[in-house]
Design a protein around this nucleic acid. Sequence first.
RNA 1: UGGGGCAUCGCCAAGCGGUAAGGCACAGGGUUUUGAUCCCUGCAUUCCCAGGUUCGAAUCCUGGUGCCCCAGCCA
Length: 562
Amino acid sequence: MSEEPVKKPTNFIRHIIDADLENGKNEGRITTRFPPEPNGYLHIGHAKSIVLNFGIAEDYNGRCNLRFDDTNPHKENSEFVEAIKADVHWLGCDPKENIFFASDYFEKLFAYAVELIKKGKAYVCDLSAEQIREYRGTLTQAGKNSSYRDRSVEENLTLFNAMRNGDFADGEKVLRAKIDMSSGNINLRDPTIYRVRHGIVHHQTGSQWCIYPMYDYTHCISDALEGITHSLCTLEFEDHRPLYNWFLEQLDVPHHPRQIEFSRLTLEHTVTSKRKLSELVEQGFVEGWDDPRMPTIAGMRRRGYSAASIREFCNRIGVTKAHNVVEMAMLEDCIRSDLNDNAPRRMAVLNPLKVVITNYDDSKVEDLLSANHPQNEEFGKRSIPFCNEIYIDRSDFAEVPPKKYKRLIPGGEVRLRNAYVIRCDEMIKDEQGELIELRCSVDADTLGKNPEGRKVKGVIHWVSAKHGISAEVRLFDRLFSHPTPDNTKDGSDYTAHINPEALRTLSHCVLENSLASAEIGQGFQFEREGYFCLDPAKTADGRPVFNRTITLRDVWAKMQSK
RNA sequence: UGGGGCAUCGCCAAGCGGUAAGGCACAGGGUUUUGAUCCCUGCAUUCCCAGGUUCGAAUCCUGGUGCCCCAGCCA
């Protein structure tokens, strides 16, 4: 059998690229770039862009640069730079030696600004920020020219150099492009291209500069300098494209990339705006950027999402210009399907209830050989100790069972997964009447075969009380109970919809002893419960912590909630 | 008549003049020592609306409607 070739995604951007290739543009070369601003951690929305840009580079034998858009040092820092590099790498994307910073081009950017001034296309403006806003006009009314618009080239040159030399305070002067104050496109109403910023140590250039270029001016030139052929960005930059092109047309740049916009990802039950994610971290709603409840790459990784599942998600949702809101179920299916194929099975009891097997020798221990994957023999087998004292989950016993319940009930039988059939003979309760233990008897003739003459429908998981290891398990759920917390009908704040159940900590779970050798991040299926992975943290008393990545599908729970 | 975009199943999304792919979700059924997985089956006579062109229109034309983005010295 031949391996099924991984089908390449198809979308309108790839169609454009195909057409460009057919027309012989850029000598058949394809170069893209992923341009994050290092002012926060990468999230699932960035993953869409990363997979798009690196995916195109790979499929077209091109290249994708990682370029930090670091023109606003006030908000940026190297912790974010390093985290972004790590996340891109973890996602399986390799920019190789092509890691750049917009700040690498500050000197060139300055020279291009001088060129603009010399061509009479830029001027130093003394208007205050408020005045600039007033002069800009409104959406329906044209703006008016700044009184500094007609300064001579010489004066502009002198002033711009003085700006660089630190002769002016923050806000005192800016450099503006001279375009058209009456344009219907507000971006073309003499946009600011350089501002003065004193007293900031830039994470890459230190204190070298006190003037910083703006995004619109920087981005297109950076793309041009790097020979980017297709500059892919989100829809809100559509209005900026005329400006992107304007700069490149005025300037003597080596190359003119094509900007193409696509719609950003909106995922239900979470938020993907850096401002909001920062707030969640800074205001302590979560424990950090890598909190497993966060839609950040780092958070999802810690939660147990694989890079492959995130890439699969990005390919499934596609790339278009249509506004879209993707259901969380789509993401959840991606990780379930990955882990179903790739996670070894284990047993773990989350809410332990002790069971004593009364007819089993209390000094005996049997090693039961169990498959690590029910459908894939390549996963091999492991041995699980069985003895007269075990734990089962409290939800797997019911004194008064609901309809169709097929787990353990008083006097009833159930199959212990990978082991024997037991019968519940007696319930032990404490003074408060709370169930604390079950006394059961085992049918010794049911190992690997069905009992004679009766059917046992239920199968439950268990862990040896004498061998199991104690652990903390964190059950994660959707961070927000509202599907679109930042866009509610009643206009409520997104923080009002944080799901208090998004994290439930179970401090005393019992895991199958083989889990003692689990590695951080490695995914396991805890049978009948879900997919879990070992967290880097330990409990205060040194016990392991496991994170629930996602539950198993559960039609029983669905039936019950109806 | 400010400018720029978008409208195909509950959600995502193919489709590019030849008679509506696929995935998710959902609903039934089968297998099963995970109420998991897996396997069947069903799920848009119709593509925002209305006209028009055509033998033939989701695709072309005309006119509407709805929704989104833009007035940072943020990106």
